[in-house]
Nucleic acid binder design. Sequence first.
DNA 1: TACATAATTGAAAGCGCTTTGGATGCCACT
DNA 2: AGTGGCATCCAAAGCGCTTTCAATTATGTA
Lengths: 341, 341
Amino acid sequence: MNLKQLSELLGLSQTTVSRALNGYPEVNEATRERVLRAVKETGYRPNKAAQRLATGKAGSIGLVMPTAPGHQSDVHFGEFLTGLGEEAVRHDFHFVIMPADPDDEVGALRRLAISGNVDALFVAYMRGHDPRLAMLKSLSMPFVVHGRSFGTEPDYPYLDIDNETAFYDAARLLLQLGHTRFALMNGPAHLDFAIRRRNGLIAALGERGLELSEDCTSHTVMTDEEGLIAMERFLQLAERPTAILCSSTVLALGAIRAVNQAGLKLGEDISLIAHDDVLPLLKPENFSVPLTTTRSSLRAAGVRIAQRLISTVKQAGPFPEQELWKTELIVRASTGPAPQS
Amino acid sequence: MNLKQLSELLGLSQTTVSRALNGYPEVNEATRERVLRAVKETGYRPNKAAQRLATGKAGSIGLVMPTAPGHQSDVHFGEFLTGLGEEAVRHDFHFVIMPADPDDEVGALRRLAISGNVDALFVAYMRGHDPRLAMLKSLSMPFVVHGRSFGTEPDYPYLDIDNETAFYDAARLLLQLGHTRFALMNGPAHLDFAIRRRNGLIAALGERGLELSEDCTSHTVMTDEEGLIAMERFLQLAERPTAILCSSTVLALGAIRAVNQAGLKLGEDISLIAHDDVLPLLKPENFSVPLTTTRSSLRAAGVRIAQRLISTVKQAGPFPEQELWKTELIVRASTGPAPQS
DNA sequence: TACATAATTGAAAGCGCTTTGGATGCCACT
DNA sequence: AGTGGCATCCAAAGCGCTTTCAATTATGTA
């Protein structure tokens, strides 16, 4: 069943039927109802490909999903996607997901954009000096970046959390508790959020004349295994750190395993603050020792970015081009005074 | 830059250029090279919408993502998607994800199919007597189901794991260890896998003249909170169960918290076997007491289903229409002899 | 009554691609 | 010379929709 058939069935022109369906004012209400009823009865649905070809609009948001045989799936990605979806479903938008090798992000993004399959792009996993930004700007397709790109003029639409302040504040709390030996379990070193969080920590330490040593820094993918490995390394140092900043509750999961295995007590021997993306699976309050965290909901960010993207496509109300969300510092039981040793 | 412009630039017809690009044999090799070179230089990319309208093929797989404001994101979904993606990227396929309210799965699926946006459908979260099957069959669009639909003639393409045998075997192991009081922490009661796992357990118990009481059964969404709640309930029973079968490591996470909080020892006071979807975040061997599990990789299933879907669309080699994967029963430390009390 | 105006509806031209059904020229073969 | 076959190439017809421009009818005004 297509427009032509439907219009013949109704004894109307394709034009009128099309107008009736798309809510144009110049069509008689009686006819519109007749059309709508026929649509119900026949189950007619416009062909999206044709619609897109005619209008240029696709009603879809494109994103690249990094994936490869060895590449571990990322809960953060899924959580964010859920947020995007929550908003998209309200506007009858869908996603086009292009799976791509993490090494070919630029290419994948370009292919997605040029394919004509999407109206707007969403970009995540931002790096320092990210090469995708130049490409995106040259593309004349709306986009919103989740995160920012360190070292690049911030003249593009983004939504980011204030990573630097988050870890600065977290470090300050631990400093006030008397800690002086810090360690950082961070995400991959080239990613923007990792750079900023590290900077935040270093700034806070610097104010007290302290430094963050290489020994006490780990940059890894954010899995619990890597958390375990990193923490084991820290615990074997002669000058064992007592204060740990951790970029994800996923890393914390492994880190805490290591702490327990070493027979140490979290919140006493070791204080730990993790960044909490509000993953439903890893609630900080559910850890055996509830976790002190810097918190910002990944899903909420997804909803917000979808809002901005969709309203841009629909040319609706103006949204701020740049948003920087504060994180919350929530104190629970994994932080305590520095041990007297 | 479109086909017309490109062909004018080359002094060729659109026909020839199109054929050159799509590998048709009736074009002079010299001309083809000329075309290919021009494509490189101009950066021309065919418009997918037009291509699709003309061919009917979209190079994409459609799936419905259940989502709603209160709806918690599901790690299982993300993990499966990663598997699909891993395979799709090899064939330059992408996904069209239609977010939809969990109550409107049928409608969302139909809309997705009729939209003309996808070549094939993937369907998950199967229920008993699932109404989507009739719809899918009437659709004349290739599809593969992950799971099956209990109570329906299995005459559709599916990939499932042998849930019944998995839990039957798991229960047998616990019976051999002397357990007689069983409990089941299952997924939502209407879902196919939940029905089958329950049946497997009941069958094993039946052979020993045992029954599964309602008190000792919980059907919930598979989050760690629900696992905690269910286990707390079980532990307060007069005749406390000593053997727990658990449909997900996510549920197990909460369940084990409850066990610990009650001051009981996993593997001694309480034996637990969980089904392990091989989620990177929840490795059974990383639990404080490593978990005995029935195992089957969700991601591998995703890869396989993508293979079948894509090869069907490309009309390539024949794949079996129906696959039933065995699960592995892997014994670790969360199971032990029934306590003598 | 005549004419301007508003309210409806349609015909047809695209959107950018694939593909059918010829053309055209060149060669070998009878 | 005449014919069939082959290798190349092209014109034009769709695919199913939106939208411009124009036509028709109904309504109101002078």
